[in-house]
């Protein structure tokens, strides 16, 4: 076998190990879905009447607000799931098993690749589950074409990949799982100050640029545009730039830490 097929084979082995963990301990993954689902139900059924007054220049009803909020909730789900990845990576790195892998003739990057691919797959599965809840309470896309659905799916996967690389870096930088969980906290807080729940335009002027240009808002606006036909504008490029930037940063950060001598 050449080195590429060895790299693929070892990465696949590591991925299977990660998925086996997720399969054996589903509650670890499912717990991470609670926050976005609670947020969805809370904002729709408890705050819904007030919130819907803020969109579409007022006069929107509950189903309009569901349509508005679901894209943001889906990307919040990604943020929540990758917090789990940060905790998991930090747990794994402190285990002796990783030291064993390092003394074996396996492809060095396979451990990291296994974590990254595993986390992206989990994020996508989580988004599908939360999306199903959204559909159950009445979310419908307004005549999105097959191509738009595909693009929406691709955007979610790319966004998951970007946040995952950052989360893996955080997991490696943390001395223990608690620290990893704290460090990754912004990944679930950022959606709260994005256009997920209310349009950025309704926020105070000084705060608006922060809300508009942080990574979640362009991605949410793009997803909204793909599923609901709203204006995407420059948000598509912004979202893409954020994803590529975060992937590059997270990749450099994670591999640099992984290749350092372990303590």
């Amino acid at each position: 076998m050449n080195s590429l097929s060895l790299a693929v084979r070892d990465s696949h082995t590591m991925l299977r190990r990660n998925l086996l963990h997720a399969w054996r301990y589903p509650s670890a993954t499912l717990n991470l879905l609670l926050t976005p689902i609670m947020m969805l139900l809370l904002f729709v059924y408890i705050f819904g009447d007030v919130m819907s007054a803020g969109i579409a220049g007022g006069g929107a009803d509950r189903s309009d607000y569901i349509a508005y909020i679901v894209p943001g909730i889906l990307l919040m789900t990604v943020g929540s799931t990758v917090i789990g990845a940060a905790v998991y990576v930090s747990m794994d790195m402190t285990e002796g098993l990783i030291a064993r892998f390092r003394t074996m003739a396996v492809y060095r990057g396979s451990v990291v690749v296994g974590h990254v691919v595993g986390s992206v797959l989990q994020s996508v599965a989580s988004v599908v589950l939360v999306g199903a809840v959204g559909v159950a309470i009445g979310f419908r896309s307004t005549d999105a074409t097959a191509l738009e659905w595909l693009a929406a799916f691709g955007l979610i996967a790319l966004f998951a990949l970007a946040l995952t690389w950052i989360a893996v870096g955080m997991g490696m930088a943390s001395p223990n799982p608690e620290a990893a969980s704290n460090m990754a906290m912004p990944l679930i807080l950022l959606p709260l100050i994005s256009s997920a729940f209310i349009p950025a335009g309704t926020m105070p002027g000084w705060f608006r640029p922060i809300a508009e240009y942080q990574p979640f808002t362009p991605a949410i606006e793009t997803l909204r545009g793909l599923l609901l036909g709203t204006e995407i504008g420059h948000n598509g490029w912004l979202a893409l730039a954020w994803c590529v930037g975060l992937i590059a940063l997270g990749y450099r950060w994670s591999t640099a830490q992984f290749n350092r001598d372990p303590m």
Binding site: R17, L20, R24, Y25, E95, G96, L97, A99, R100, T103
Partner: peptide
């Protein structure tokens, strides 16, 4: 490729 290592602290996967 030539060695096997059993470290001082356990290097097993406890979850499986």
């Amino acid at each position: 490729a030539a060695i096997g290592v059993t470290g001082q602290f356990s290097a097993v996967d406890g979850l499986i």
